[in-house]
């Protein structure tokens, strides 16, 4: 890490007094209460980066924690603005973030609007392969889902994951999803589906099929589906659903489950 940071950045790391002004202004500090990763807090990110840069061995677990912490950031610049010793924290995050996600450990939070900033900075991202972390994250999820690998096989409908299905029905986001009666309106109104000549070929399971998989308790197909990550969250499906199924929110719940499930496994 030390040789990958600029001279100025190494000096800046030395300047940190761990006063934690940055953490007290961080826009996502509250996320720590939901995802207990101390590296979400800027002051702790700096502490971890300092350790890495000075050659102290961080465990793989600690590096993953830093990778996630550095990504769980909205790039709002507040930390940089308030730092009393003038460290350009934003530049540090940009640099370290890109270095870490290119290492090969999938970072699942890249599959979110937290990546918007990375998309804007695409031209500047001189190092590494832009698409790699995204493909890696998607593959990490689908590789945990056995049924996703069996493309042309006939699926047995038993055993189904009852716990998964009832979990969805009881969740806040996917509540009552099972009143879906398979009309396919969600898929019909989806702008992403409409965008492609052969949507199933490009996207895999379409919204109504993901709903169907969830209804059948086929957890692998529901949370392993690629299209979850191509959802624009435009809410057309939810708005048009004649049964009042909160389709977009069901997809959110499936995304959350996919990330939670995959994180435990990889």
């Amino acid at each position: 890490m030390g040789k990958n940071l600029s001279m100025i950045q190494l000096m800046e790391l030395d300047a940190c007094t761990h006063c934690a002004m940055c953490s007290s202004h961080c826009s996502v500090a509250i996320a720590f209460e939901g995802i207990p990763n101390i590296n979400i807090l800027p002051s702790e990110k700096v502490a971890s980066i300092k350790a890495l840069a000075s050659g102290n061995p961080l465990t793989e677990q600690e590096i993953r924690g830093l990778q996630e912490g550095v990504y769980l950031c909205t790039n709002c610049y507040r930390c940089t603005v308030v730092c009393p010793v003038g460290i350009n924290l934003q530049n540090l995050w940009n640099r370290v973030r890109e270095l870490l996600i290119q290492r090969g450990i999938p970072e699942l939070s890249v599959l979110s609007p937290l990546s918007f900033y990375r998309g804007l900075m695409k031209a500047e991202a001189a190092q590494g392969d832009y698409e790699k972390p995204l493909t890696q994250a998607r593959e990490a999820i689908s590789s945990q889902c056995d049924l996703m690998k069996k493309k042309d096989e006939v699926l047995h409908l038993t055993p189904v994951d009852e716990k998964f299905k009832s979990g969805l029905d009881l969740s806040s986001q996917a509540k009552n999803f099972s009143i879906c009666f398979g009309c396919q309106t969600c898929t019909t109104v989806c702008p992403v589906v409409r965008h492609y000549e052969n949507p199933q070929e490009v996207l895999g399971l379409l919204p109504h099929q993901i709903m169907h998989a969830a209804g059948l308790g086929l957890k692998d197909l529901a949370i392993g589906s690629n299209m979850l990550w191509d959802c624009l969250t435009c809410y057309q499906c939810q708005e048009q659903c004649p049964r009042g199924v909160p389709v977009t929110d069901v997809l959110y719940e499936l995304k959350n489950s996919a990330i939670k499930y995959t994180k435990e496994k990889i």
Partner: peptide, 22 residues
């Protein structure tokens, strides 16, 4: 004021809700 939680919704529901609710 902190992040409204929108970009966190893909990742974790409770985290999104806490951010928004704060």
């Amino acid at each position: 004021f902190n992040c409204c939680g929108y970009p966190l919704r893909n990742i974790d529901f409770k985290t999104f809700l806490l951010a928004s609710a704060r």
